[in-house]
Computed example of a mutant assay.
Amino acid sequence: MTTLRTPGPTLGVVGGGQLGRMLAEAAAPLGVEVVVLDPTPDCPAAPVARDQIVAEFDDEAGIRELAARADVLTFEIELADQDVLERVSEDSGTPVHPDPATLETIHDKLVQKRTLEDAGVPVPPFRAVDGPDDVREAIDDYGAPVMLKARTGGYDGRGNVPVESKADAAEALESVAGPAMVESFVDFKREISVIAVKGDDETAAFPIGENVHEDEILRETIVPAGSEEAVEQRAREVAEDVLGVMEGRGVYGIELFEAPNGDVLLNEIAPRPHNSGHWTIEGAQSSQFEQHVRAVLGWPLAATDLRSPTVSVNLLGDVDKSRDAELRNVDRVLETPAANLHWYGKRQVRPLRKMGHVTLAGREGETTEELLETARELERAVTFTSE
């Protein structure tokens, strides 16, 4: 067995947003230093990382500098360029986890779905779209509505357009503005997710979370989910199958649909820590961010057990246009027992931009319903406006 020592290695992270920030926070107690690469000077991760390289996510010279300063490379954003990462890794000898091949699979949602379907992972019916007639044919076959998705570049619901009728097909396709695919609309009972971890020779998964979206943006995560045990077991099995397809170590956010009949269908995968796993910082024996650091370095994974019922709510920009960020009524959160504020350090607030989150880990006797009611009150209280 390899002897691990701290202070330890340096982790190079492509992306310095809130995920990079929380990765650096989790790495520090392990004796791991973090250097991030991000095009925004003084990015959200900068105050807690060892250093920042200011460069675009696909800037080869910048990524080569990052590789020269790191023992392992990883990424917190899918805009990282898989070809550049692979080339730099081969030339420098600095490994990348998850593997760039996985990033290539994830980048294109059509490729992602085909790869997973071929591996036996249950997915909703889908097809490629070359023009409005393909959308109309999908409505004939799947029924209305259908979900039109941009194959690349979409995240946080961007690039996802429900198409209610054949008459809307052309306009919806134009709004996607690029290669697209279409899926059958899933009449789900609830949306759930598994934060799964692929280590050197082991895997792990956190308890299943139930997710609440509005306008295709995640608003709330509740753990434990309200699913039956048989559904949760099936979700864990699907997550394990997904890990078998993915190449490279790290955390994978696996979003799933729970159908009314108890079936579990895959929605999408993020090859990185995920918004629906933020609750793990207070609610589990280890956080998804600590697990990602451990996994990409090839270290043993930590326990993922639930500490207590936990809910997490996102703090979104409630403004009508971009402005300097100033979060108000923070005292409402700070004076609430067991409420935990996470501020992402973004200088500008925009409509519905993720600016932070609040987590409540239950104390003895508290239910997720009670926690969620309190969390919603706190979310409504904090604001970015002076009105």
Rank of each mutant, 00 (worst) to 15 (best):
R236C: 12
V251P: 06
P207V: 12
S227D: 07
M181F: 06
A150R: 02
D187Q: 14
T221L: 12
A169L: 03
N211T: 03
L173D: 02
G178P: 03
R249K: 09
E229S: 12
F257E: 01
I195W: 00
A196L: 09
G209A: 13
G253F: 14
A167G: 15
S193N: 03
A169C: 04
R236W: 12
G253W: 07
G178Q: 02
D156H: 06
R219T: 10
E210L: 09
G178A: 02
D187M: 13
D201H: 09
A150C: 03
G178Y: 05
G226F: 03
G253A: 14
P179R: 07
P207Q: 11
F188Q: 01
V242M: 01
A170Q: 15
G248H: 09
R190A: 15
R190Q: 15
G209R: 05
E232H: 09
D156M: 05
P179F: 07
V163I: 13
V197N: 11
G154F: 05
G209Y: 07
S165K: 11
P162E: 08
N160E: 15
Y252W: 10
T221Y: 08
L256E: 04
R249F: 12
G226Y: 05
L243D: 11
D168M: 03
L218P: 00
V186D: 13
S184Y: 15
T203W: 08
Y252H: 07
L243T: 15
V223H: 02
D215K: 12
A172Y: 00
A170L: 13
V194T: 01
S193Y: 04
V194K: 00
H213M: 08
L256D: 03
G153W: 01
Q233R: 11
F206L: 09
V194A: 00
L148I: 11
Y252C: 06
A177P: 02
K149Y: 01
I222A: 09
E232V: 11
A225D: 09
E229F: 12
D241M: 14
D215F: 07
M181I: 08
D156T: 05
L173F: 10
G159T: 06
A196M: 06
